[in-house]
Nucleic acid binder design. Structure first.
Lengths: 216, 216
DNA sequence: AACACTATTGACCACTACGGTCAATTTAAA
DNA sequence: TTTAAATTGACCGTAGTGGTCAATAGTGTT
């Protein structure tokens, strides 16, 4: 057989035959461990324990630790790609655009809480085993996302006396800041749907403050 | 001898006889490793390598890994305490107060780049060997710092239609955001003094934007 | 009930890195 | 030259690593 030999692919296709719930448990367990400890110091034992499967199963689905990592990275990048693709370039209002992206991100985070953290961790990853290939796979997505998120933005909506670049930075930092705060409070909520609504609603308050400050 | 037995103290006093430069190298190496990997996964081998001393020396100065960690934590907390004590309660302008604290923090970070990160990492530390004692030592300082930083602030300076609580959050997130950005750019500068000046100068730009937005 | 086939397990392997020790060596002081 | 103190790094028992694979459990077919 020329194509599809086991050595060529990251993953054993039988992984996709698992119940979706189990797939998600494995994906989340892997992401969580790699985010927390980086590639080298992450333990496959810890992953199987968190996922509630055996070591043998994990290494049945994935050839080795590295392939597992790369699968998770690709998995995350595809999701980001979809979000980027969905950006509506017609709407030049930065606050609208960020709000829409926020909704999409939130929905993903309900299923995969640390998925976006994996990408920021990957940027800082130092392990020689994966550093080079991370760069190859990550940088085009990064470039694209940065470009498209700010493409065709209507800067005339901003007040003339405000430094647009710095304003956008403040907006970004506020977003991540509020995101972190929300995640840290998430433990107390059981109904993630309700939490999501509250989250988006309260985000509007922050957004309004900055919009009032930065817009004409 | 009743007091000062080696078992009772975190540190062998001969550590203080070392040249200050060497002390700082050891402190920074330890902080860096513990911040990056947490207590359990931090390696004393990595620390001695980074510090440029031998394993025997490290365990001569400190009884064990745990005492080293606690020494570094206490060392950091004392510095934070000093900064808190220096807050001028007469000045009710939040922006002024934060600016002054920022200057103090910056000076510390010139000598100990990751010192404040050790405290935020300590909050999230999960190792059972140190988790309990961290809480005991950390929480009073945290409480004090939060209280005093916002004590006697003149809220009448804020516009009536702005949510002060959220405004302060935005200010905090902008501070940490810009701090992170600055640290990530720090590699390219050799003269830390000059960098510090630029840093504070540019911080003023962000501060002005928010001040203009939030104040009457 | 008996069979065939796949999915899943966890004991096990060779190996690496760990925290900590201490006899031997270097350095500094007297 | 002698003595004392500071520093080293080879070495120890232990624990945890990524990965394997014979054995077992589970499922569907006849």
């Amino acid at each position: 057989m020329k194509y599809g030999r086991k050595e060529d692919v990251l993953i054993n296709p039988s992984f996709y035959n698992l119940k979706q719930q189990k797939q998600e448990r494995i994906i989340n367990a892997g992401i969580k461990e790699f985010v927390r400890n980086g590639f080298d110091k992450s333990s496959t034992n810890a992953i199987v324990e968190e996922a509630g499967i055996s070591k043998g199963s994990l290494f049945n689905y994935f050839n080795n630790k590295k392939d597992l990592y790369l699968f998770l990275l690709d998995y995350s990048l595809e999701i980001v790609d979809k979000i980027i693709d969905d950006i509506d370039l017609e709407d030049g209002d930065l606050f609208n655009r960020i709000h829409k992206v926020g909704i999409r991100k939130l929905k993903v985070q309900m299923e995969f809480p640390h998925l976006f953290d994996l990408m920021t961790a990957a940027v800082a990853e130092e392990s020689e085993d994966v550093r080079d290939i991370i760069k190859v796979r990550l940088s085009p997505v990064y470039r694209e996302s940065q470009n498209k998120l700010y493409e065709n933005i209507d800067y005339s909506l901003f007040r003339e006396d405000v430094d647009v670049e710095k304003a956008i930075e403040i907006l970004t930092w506020t977003m991540t800041g509020y995101g972190d705060k929300a995640v840290s409070q998430l433990r107390s909520f059981e109904d993630l749907g309700e939490f999501g609504e509250r989250y988006l609603e309260e985000w509007e308050r922050y957004s309004e403050i900055l919009k009032y400050s930065f817009y004409k």
